[in-house]
Design a protein around this nucleic acid. Structure first.
Lengths: 246, 246
DNA sequence: AAAATAATGTGTTTAAATTACACATTAAAT
DNA sequence: ATTTAATGTGTAATTTAAACACATTATTTT
């Protein structure tokens, strides 16, 4: 933003650049961050929700969010919420979109910046326990408090797009995973079935999987081999793609 | 956002749901919208910039933006800026990302929601004239006021991604266009050269171009045929794609 | 008026990527 | 020892993308 104040098309345009000291209090707006926390369990894509305790949304579930402090970075606010709710640091976090409908919050104008994050459910299973937090199947959610269903939908769509072009799926899995687990993640996120042979072929061709020479443990069937994802190699080789298709 | 106030991991979490009436003034933040206005001229991708009149950024160029009024929708603010600066309604507009670095604005904490828009330069050429607005080659920009270079880069990257999967390019062209012009747009945005025959084949195969049985006028060479893009047909047939590639 | 110019317009061949598809192997469970 | 249920692997067919050259048309130049 920020510019000169010209008269243009008969409209007097005053902008931030004319404000030399501070933005007037009357122009300020409450800002929040909402986190769509995705997990993967029982071959389903899950999202972590909390019961709303607002009267207006009694009994409804909502995303995890909080106001942004004026001295706090947006990403820091998102990370703070994740740490508070899951106990996890260093989770995959990506901004999705900002939602600012005038009537989206009963407390008045609250603009919210949506993030989604991908976590490994096993890593924090112990930390939910009590309270009103629960994992929900993404595909079973029909209604949420506020405009959170809309935020969830946008986030899920962005996840579906991004997971096809970036190595996100691994953030939902343990460091060691079998190809079957990996395929299950993709099938859950993209809501589709894939051919096992072609799936394996594709990933082996990419050459980012490291055979760590270990097998699955405690599975009720023939154990599969375990792999790591080599992020360093990916960072070096990742492709810039060009193609038109719609 | 919005939830209960639990004690969790030793941290007392108070959130919006505890605020029944209104968010405290002290928690509010100035919010702006910045528009990256893309155009296409002389076979180059252009962006509309204005000279900053902030002392701190004297002589520097900046994006077009303004504060969001607390009673104004985010999209409305973006449309208002576009209308003010270009005189255009109904332009293609897409939210990119929200930038909120603590020190991004000298006037204090100002969080800005970035949008990019695609307009046909010819349609409003008359309206810039005076004032400090100018079109700049996207690829020649090395520095901008505020964090606007970063905003431009993010917007340009998003445009490059989206233009490959959605029919955005047509928003930069007149309703009637030749295949050569269309290819020039893609080559400018993606910064690449394409084979003319394969390009035409691809678009004819998509079957969204309507031959309007007219030829280019006043071109200093053999005129090409003119086409429309059939948005209705596209909306009906657009594909949901599934594939993994990174 | 004729020749030169500079762009449009079109098909085929080759290579690469994706899809479809079936059977042997291994460890666990019975 | 047998059954079960998953892992693990290769090839052929199809589709998609890439490479590539020449005739055509309107304009411009001579």
């Amino acid at each position: 933003m920020a510019n000169s104040n010209h008269t243009n098309h008969g409209t007097n345009i005053k902008t931030l650049s004319t404000i030399q000291t501070e933005v007037k209090s009357i122009n300020r707006i409450a800002l929040s961050v909402d986190c769509v926390i995705f997990g993967f369990d029982e071959n389903k894509l899950k999202v972590l929700l909390i019961r709303s305790d607002l009267k207006k949304f009694q009994g409804k579930w909502s995303l995890l969010g909080d106001l942004v402090d004026p001295t706090e970075e947006l990403d820091s606010a998102a990370n703070r919420i994740l740490k508070q709710r899951t106990g996890l640091d260093d989770v995959y976090l990506e901004q999705v979109k900002t939602f600012g409908c005038l009537d989206r919050h009963p407390a008045g104008r609250v603009v919210t910046v949506a993030y989604y994050s991908l976590i490994n459910i096993q890593h924090h299973k112990l930390k939910i326990l009590d309270n009103e937090l629960h994992w929900h199947d993404v595909n079973d959610i029909t209604e949420l408090a506020f405009d959170h269903k809309q935020i969830l939908d946008s986030s899920y769509e962005q996840l579906q797009r991004r997971v096809q072009e970036h190595p996100l799926a691994f953030s939902l899995l343990p460091k060691k995973f079998s190809l079957r687990e990996l395929q299950n993640v993709y099938e859950a996120i993209l809501d589709t079935k894939m051919d096992r042979r072609n799936f394996r072929k594709k990933f082996f061709a990419m050459d980012f999987l490291v055979d760590i020479d270990q097998m699955e443990q405690d599975v009720p069937h023939r154990p599969g081999k375990l792999y790591n994802f080599n992020y360093n190699k990916y960072e070096k080789k990742k492709k810039k793609w060009v193609g038109i298709d719609f």
